[in-house]
Design a binder for these strands. Structure first.
Lengths: 233, 233
DNA sequence: CCCTCCTTCGATACACCGTACTGATCAATA
DNA sequence: TATTGATCAGTACGGTGTATCGAAGGAGGG
C-alpha cells in the first residue's frame, strides 16, 4: 500500500496532476490587478473572474482575501486614496490641495468617478487623508470641522463626477471634440427651437465656454470663500 | 390552402396560440415600472427582464421603446427631474430651492443617488429645471451663470451621494442606528487606538454631531455665500 | 506509525443579467 | 392574390457574482 497503488509500481504510475504552483496571492496583488483592469477598460471590465484570470487563479480563490466584489471596490478606492495626500500651509490651502489631488486622481483613474461618494470611506488611506485635513483645521471651532470638510468633499465628488461624465460623453460620440459638438449642438438647437428654454438658450449661446480646470476652480473658490467668511466670524 | 392546413380542417385545427393580448406599452409605462422596482428594492433590482415581467411582456419588447438599459436609466432620472422644480424669488432662493428639491427627490428615490452626476442630464425635464435656474440668474453676468449653477449642482450631487451612502451603511448594519454606532464605534475606536489619527480622533470625539439636514444646509450656505460675494463684485 | 476526523480550499454549478440573432408574422406592393 | 419587405419578439449566448459541495491536506488519537 505504500509503494504500490492500484497495482502499479511507481514507474508506471502517473505523476500527480501537476498542481500548477499555487500563485502567491495577497490583497494587494488582487487590488493592483483590479486597478490595472479598471484603468485600461473602465469599471465594467472589473469582474472577479477577470481579476482572477489576470492572476492565473480560480475565481473563488479571491474569496479567501475579500468577501465579495463590493469589498474589492472599496479596496480599490482606498488604494487610490493613498495617492491623495493633501498638503500646504493653513486650512484653506490644505482643503484646496485635497480637492485638486482628488480631481487629479480621478483623471488618472476615471473609474474613481463612478465610486466617489458611493460608500463611506473608512479605509486607512482615507482616514489618513482625513487626519491631515483635521489637523490643518485644528485652529478652527471643533464643531465646524466636519461640516466644512464634508462640504468641500461633497463639492469635489459632484464636480469630478460631472466632469468625467462629460468627458466620457464626448469620447463616446466620436473620438474628437468636433463630433461631440456636432451632435450635441443640433440636439440643443432643436431643443431651443421649441422656445421652451429661452433663458438657457441665451446662456449657452452668449456665455464664454470655460474649460474644465477653470470651472472646477471657480466653484471651489466660491465654496472656500464662503467657508472662510463663516469661520472668521 | 385557405381552409385546410396540414391536412386539418378548421374543426380539428387548434386555435393560434392565444396571443396574450399584447399589453399596451409606452415609454412612460416602462419608466414607471422601472421606478417602482427601483423604489422598492434599489437600483440593482431594475433589470430589463424584471421590468418586462412587471409589464407582462417579453424582455425584447422593451427594445422597441428604448435602446438599452442605459437609456432606461436616463429616462428614470429625467422622470424624477420632473419633480424637481426650483422656485422662489431671486437667484439665491432659486438655487437653494433647487438643492433642497434635489435632495428631497433623492430621499424619496434613493437610487437617484447612484445615478446623480453619472451622465450629462439633457432630458426635457432636466432642461426645464435648467431654464428656471438660468432665468433666475438672468440678472447676473452671463459668463458667471454656468459655473455658479454648476457649482451648486456639483455640491448637491456630492452631498446627496454621501448622505445616502451613509444612510444605507447604517441600514445595512442592523436596522437601527444603535447597531450602526455599535459597529462603527469599535472600528473607529481600534483605528484611533493606533494613534495614527490624533486630530481626527479629537474631532470625532469632541465635535457636536450634526444631523443630515443641518450638515447639508451649512455646506450649501457656505457655497451660496461665496457665490454671492463673487457675483456682487 | 497508520488511520480517522476535521478543516480548508477552490472548482463546479446556479440563477441571473444584457442583448445579438433569427425565425415568424404581418402589411404593403406588384 | 402572390410576393416581398419590414417589423417584432422569443430563443439563446456569453458573461456576471457567489452558494455549494466534493476533494485534498493537516492534526490528533489508537
Amino acid at each position: 500500500m505504500r509503494c504500490i497503488v492500484n497495482g502499479m509500481l511507481v514507474w508506471e504510475r502517473p505523476e500527480p496532476p501537476e498542481r500548477p504552483t499555487p500563485a502567491p496571492l495577497s490583497r494587494e496583488r488582487i487590488v493592483r490587478a483590479a486597478i490595472r483592469l479598471a484603468d485600461a477598460d473602465g469599471l465594467d471590465a472589473v469582474s472577479l473572474r477577470k481579476v482572477a484570470t489576470a492572476l492565473e487563479v480560480g475565481p473563488m480563490r479571491l474569496y479567501g482575501y475579500i468577501d465579495g466584489k463590493q469589498e474589492l471596490l472599496d479596496l480599490m478606492v482606498d488604494a487610490v486614496h493613498a495617492e491623495i495626500r493633501p498638503s500646504g500651509d493653513g486650512w484653506r490651502e490644505v482643503l484646496r490641495s485635497l480637492a485638486e489631488a482628488t480631481r487629479h486622481a480621478a483623471h488618472e483613474h476615471e473609474w474613481l468617478a463612478d465610486l466617489l461618494g458611493g460608500r463611506p470611506q473608512l479605509g486607512p488611506n482615507a482616514l489618513a487623508g482625513g487626519e491631515i485635513v483635521a489637523a490643518a483645521l485644528g485652529g478652527v471651532d471643533v464643531d465646524a470641522v466636519m461640516p466644512v470638510a464634508g462640504a468641500v468633499n461633497a463639492y469635489v465628488i459632484g464636480a469630478v463626477r460631472r466632469e468625467i461624465a462629460e468627458r466620457r460623453a464626448e469620447r463616446a460620440t466620436g473620438l474628437d471634440k468636433k463630433r461631440w459638438q456636432a451632435l450635441l449642438g443640433p440636439y440643443l438647437e432643436r431643443a431651443f427651437a421649441t422656445g421652451r428654454y429661452p433663458a438657457l438658450e441665451t446662456v449657452v449661446r452668449d456665455a464664454a465656454h470655460l474649460n474644465a480646470d477653470e470651472t472646477f476652480r471657480i466653484g471651489l473658490d466660491c465654496l472656500l470663500d464662503g467657508i472662510e467668511a463663516r469661520i472668521a466670524q
